[in-house]
Amino acid sequence: MATQDVTLVIVVAHSLEARPLIDHFHFKSVKSSALPHYADDHGKRLIVSGMGKTNAAAAVGYISGLLAAQTVAPGFVNFGIAGHGSLDLGSGLLISKIIDAGTEAAYYPTPISCGQNMAVLKTVDQPESIYAEDLAYDMEGSGFWQAASRYSTLDLVQLFKVVSDNAENDTGTVNKARIEAVLAGQLEGFAQLVTQLQALVSHHHRYHAEPVSWQSLRQVGHLTVSEQHQLRRLCQRGAALGLDEALLALAATPVGSGKELLRAVVRCVEQTPVAQPDKPEEFS
């Protein structure tokens, strides 16, 4: 994985939700961005989408465009306040199911064991004031999910909500002080989720990293797009078989056309005896 690769994008709706994260993770503002956008030194980005599911989806699309050159897409997490039908203010919730109130479609983030309480989230178009059901309410979740799960592996997309209003303390009582207070109480819990998710994403990125031999061989001879794809897969196979050095040696050998290069790489990968592979890292 290249060191500049972004592993996690945090999407928030409002600058009041961004502020505690900027302080906690030491984010710095990214200039010349169409949306308020921050980066840290550890592969994270923070973007402020604006309220509502359309804005949340647009922000995911926008930052995904900015990161399109990455070999592997980052993970995404939506952080922000939510109402709840029964839970106390300040409760932190990892979302296990999202229901879009408009379409009644349901979406299921992959459960991740991070010690947080899980809850069902309903994404509504207008602030909820009745809290009819025993679940969380927000205005971005389903839009965020639909966009993020298109740009990334859906197993790397999560939502974390903090209860800011309920039947006793409705949306009319939510103010800057309330938001700061409830989010502050859940920053550590959210940071744990971020750490865990980022580790999962980094692991995913690592095994999809561009092979060392590919970086060198792609410079040798002219390759069509199709040939580049073939070469990349051959280099991946070579790396898995422990043939990086043999392939790198090919890069130093003069070859003619792209086709000749491919033939030489195929010979190397297909004809070298297979060594005993090591056990994969996740099981060692």
């Binding site: 299921y108 991740i112 592996t153 859906l154 197993d155 790397l156 999962l200 995913h204």
Partner: peptide
């Protein structure tokens, strides 16, 4: 099938949890 048959899942990532 809402959970099991969706496109965009990654068996390898999911196998960890």
């Amino acid at each position: 099938g809402e959970v099991f048959n969706r496109a965009g899942q990654n068996f390898r990532v999911q196998k960890q949890n």
